[in-house]
Structure formats: C-alpha cells, structure tokens
Simulated scan of single mutants.
Amino acid sequence: MVAIGHSNLDIFPLALGGNTFGWTSDESTSFEILDAFTAGGGNFIDTADSYTAFVDGNSGGESESVIGNWTAARGNRDDVVIATKVAQHPEFKGLTPKNIAAAAEASLRRLQSDHIDVYFAHTDSGDAPLVDTLAAFDSLIQDGKVRYVAISNFSADRVAEWLKVAHDNGFAAPVALQPHYNLVTRNAYESDLAPLAADNDLGVFPYFSLASGFLTGKYRVREDLEGGQPRKQLAKSYFTAKGLEVVDALSEIAEAHEEEIATVALAWLLHQPTVTAPIASASTISQLPALMAAPALTLSTDELARLDATSTAVSA
C-alpha cells in the first residue's frame, strides 16, 4: 500500500478507472470488475461527474451512479477510496464556487455517500479566480463533504499558482495530481509537472496510462484501428513507427517475464519516482488481471533503460 501524497489515505498502487462504467461496461459487468478489483486488494476508484456524457444517450454521472449502486449493494463504502471530479459535467461546467457546491451535491447523491475522498478539479476552466475556486473546495472540506482536494489537467504554472493561493490563504493544500502521462507521452509531465509533484508531496495518478489501449499491443497494424470507437480514435495519435518500437520493446520484455504487455507498461510508470498509482480501466473482467499484476512486477535496470531510450524518441 502507498500513501496519497501527504494525506492519510493508503491505497493499492493501481487505480481503477471508472470511465468504462455506463459505457463499454454495463452495470452488471461493472459490478464484476469492481468485485474482482477489491478482491485482489484494490481500493482506489477514479471517476468523474462527466463520465459518460460523451456517449450518445447518456447525460453524465452514469459512472458515479454505478459506483454508488455497487457500494450500496456491497456495504463497503468505508473500504474504498473514491475520487471524482468537477468542471466538465454538462450541467455543472466550470469552477465557480456556486458550480462546485452544486456539482458536489449531485456527485454525493449519485455516489450514495456523505463524502468524497478525493475531489479533483477536472480542468482549468478559468471562469473564476483561483482564490474563489479554492475557497469553495475548502468549504466542502470544512463541511466534511470532501476529505481532500486534488488537481487534474492544469499547467505547471497554474499548479504552482494553486499551491501559492492555498498557502497564502490557509486553504487545504492539494494532495494529488492527475496528468496525462505514459510511455509515449512523457515530456510535458516530466519537464514541468514532475518537479512540482516531488517538491510539494503530491500523489501522482497518470491517466491514459496505457495510451487508450495502444500500450496493450492490440493495435499493431493500421487495420486494427479501423472503426469509429472513441478509444480507437484516441489511439490513432500514438500509432507511428516510433510508437510501434515502444510496443515492440514492451512485448519483448513482457515475454521475458511471462507477463502481458499492459502489465509492463504500467510497471514502467510505477518505477517512476513521482508516480503513486497509474489509472487503468477495464471493460471486461478478463482485462483486469494484467492491470492488477503491475505492482508486483520489478523491471531490471537494463529493461527500464531500454524503455526510456525507446520512448524518448516518440513521447510528446
């Protein structure tokens, strides 16, 4: 188990992404995945109030509702750490104090909980001064509705500003950061955000940790990306000759360890000094074992060096 930054929350070092719940996983399948995740020692579940508004016929909040139904059915709310986010739900866009308060109440209802363990600002909407945004988050903490606040999709400059505003005004400091970070997307995080995370004891939860499935090895030829599924569209941005070299290196290392390619990609993230737990999602229960195996996989110095060298040429 590892601590989330300077919080008192201890978690299994693999976070289960809830973006598939209410999308590629119906409620029954989602329950199976959540049951298997917790049975395997997992306890951190990451979602957002906007999941899955991007799916035709959905309005947002579907993932939170599935998670809330599951914890209610299992009676295990106090056994799991739930993170959700505010700023992108169609009805609750932005980070104004009024919106944060209303969105939090809506999330609590869907989660069937009296508190959110980690509440992320999902995006830097810029529609309110940071001091007002932070005051609204702090009010939720003072009221016991949120335990800790965290940041996602903010630039390094804005994260630094957030930290200063919190310090200067006595607001609760953020405990975590959620950046876009994986073997084929490294530079933006490593050059600017990683030093801030290290200096301010922020737990780091990379999203797109498997590059929308590209780092599982299932997209090896252009024909594998045919079709209109959103995940395939996202994976196309990684599909280059250099990107495929990274997958080839992962494949060879995975074969040597008798592990899945995805396991090695996640293990590489866990070997990075600032990473607390990569976020990975599963649409079916069969995908979960490869994810859960990552924390136990130790990569050699030579293997890490090979992945670092191969991915440096492609990462943005």
Rank of each mutant, 00 (worst) to 15 (best):
Ser237Tyr: 09
Lys164Trp: 06
Pro179Tyr: 12
Asp114Ile: 03
Arg220Pro: 00
Tyr238Asp: 01
Asp127Leu: 07
Thr133Lys: 09
Ile116Trp: 05
Phe120Asp: 08
Gln229Met: 10
Leu234Thr: 05
Ala156Lys: 11
Leu177Glu: 14
Asp143Ile: 01
Leu225Pro: 00
Asp224Ala: 12
Pro230Phe: 09
Phe214Cys: 00
Leu163Asp: 06
Phe137Ser: 02
Tyr148Ile: 10
Phe137Cys: 03
Ala150His: 03
Asn182Val: 11
Glu161Gly: 08
Ala135Tyr: 07
Ala176Gly: 14
Leu250Tyr: 05
Ile253Ser: 14
Ser212Arg: 02
Gly243Thr: 03
Leu140Val: 08
Ala172Ile: 04
Thr216Ala: 00
Leu196Val: 13
Gly144Gln: 10
Ala160Leu: 13
Phe137Trp: 07
Gly228Thr: 04
Val184His: 12
Asp224Thr: 03
Gly170Thr: 11
Thr123Gly: 05
Gly213Phe: 01
Leu234Arg: 11
Thr185Asn: 15
Leu225Ile: 01
Ser212His: 02
Gly227Thr: 01
Ser139Glu: 12
Leu177Ala: 15
Asp124Cys: 15
Ile141His: 12
Gly227His: 02
Leu250Ser: 09
Gly203Val: 13
Arg231Ile: 07
Asn187Glu: 15
Phe120Asn: 03
Lys218Asn: 03
Glu226Gly: 00
Leu244Gln: 11
Asp224Cys: 09
Val204Cys: 13
Ala197Arg: 12
Lys218Trp: 02
Thr216Phe: 00
His115Leu: 06
Asn200Thr: 08
Arg220Asp: 06
Phe205Trp: 10
Asp201Thr: 04
Pro230Arg: 07
Val131Asp: 11
Phe171Thr: 08
Leu225Asn: 00
Asn153Cys: 07
Thr133Trp: 03
Asp124Glu: 15
Leu140Glu: 12
Val246Trp: 03
Gly217Glu: 05
Leu210Asn: 01
Asp192His: 08
Val165Glu: 10
Asp124Lys: 14
Lys218Tyr: 01
Ala194Met: 03
Ser139Gly: 05
Gly243His: 02
Leu202Met: 04
Ala160Glu: 15
Gln142Glu: 12
Leu225Cys: 01
Arg186Met: 08
Thr216Tyr: 00
Ser152Ile: 09
Leu225Glu: 01
Gln112Gly: 01
